[in-house]
């Protein structure tokens, strides 16, 4: 292990940096984005300002939470596969234990009448949160008649036929490629650039609307 002390120091720095970012953010991965930028661009100087936007864009296009993906990607760029793993574990570890503690606490108190009463109302609020997520993602998704039709079709299929969502998602990607190819062949104008115009709205990041 001592053959490469420089790399080991770098790995522990990566681990500690993301460990610190982990526990301070509430309500979803997007809240971590400004903090990650501050740490790795301003404080550590690991990534250039012009590169960090690309990193977030890739992190956003890859499945999974954007904060964890960004951390993993930055770790990879700095120190290869071991860097990616160090960053990923670092960013996950604090929230992991907080969630486990909260779960433990919740499982202890969930049968208490007051907690039950609270959750009667909270369940209605969760429906509102999911509706809110649908509205926010819908705004970026419904860009033309085709996408609106696709949204309606998905709801209809789930309601009446019920295909596994994984298959629908894979189908959705392929359908997108097919539709754009077809539209271009027919000479129709397709606007795919909107994601570049609205990259990261820090003020409004806490729900996974930025697919």
């Amino acid at each position: 292990m001592n053959s490469n002390p420089g790399k080991l120091t770098l790995l522990s720095q990566i681990f500690m940096t993301f460990l610190k970012i982990g526990p301070v953010t509430f309500g979803g991965g997007y809240a971590m984005i400004p903090l990650i930028e501050k740490e790795v661009v301003e404080r550590r100087g690991w990534v250039k300002t012009k590169d960090i936007t690309d990193i977030f864009a890739v992190a956003e296009s890859v499945p999974g939470a954007i904060a964890i993906n960004s951390a993993t990607f930055i770790g990879y760029r700095l120190a290869g596969v071991s860097g990616a793993i160090a960053a990923m574990i670092g960013v996950m570890l604090p929230t992991f234990f907080i969630v486990v503690l909260l779960s433990l606490f919740f499982l202890q108190v969930q049968d208490h009448p007051k907690v039950e009463a609270a959750f009667v109302a909270i369940r209605a609020t969760i429906v509102a949160l999911i509706t809110y997520a649908a509205i926010k993602i819908g705004k970026t998704a419904a860009v033309d008649k085709t996408t609106v039709a696709l949204i309606g079709l998905t709801v209809g299929i789930m309601y009446f036929v019920h295909i596994h969502p994984v298959l629908l998602i894979i189908g959705g990607g392929l359908t997108g490629i097919g539709i754009i190819a077809l539209k271009q062949k027919l000479g129709m104008k397709v606007d795919l650039e909107q994601e570049d115009n609205a990259p990261f709205k820090y003020s409004d990041y806490y729900i996974g609307d930025g697919i």
Binding site: I137, T140, V143, G152, G172, I179, V190
Partner: peptide
């Protein structure tokens, strides 16, 4: 192009 389709499907699922 893939995300053009994906976003709609995910909106529908939500």
């Amino acid at each position: 192009s893939a995300f053009y389709g994906l976003r709609s499907i995910i909106t529908g699922l939500i």
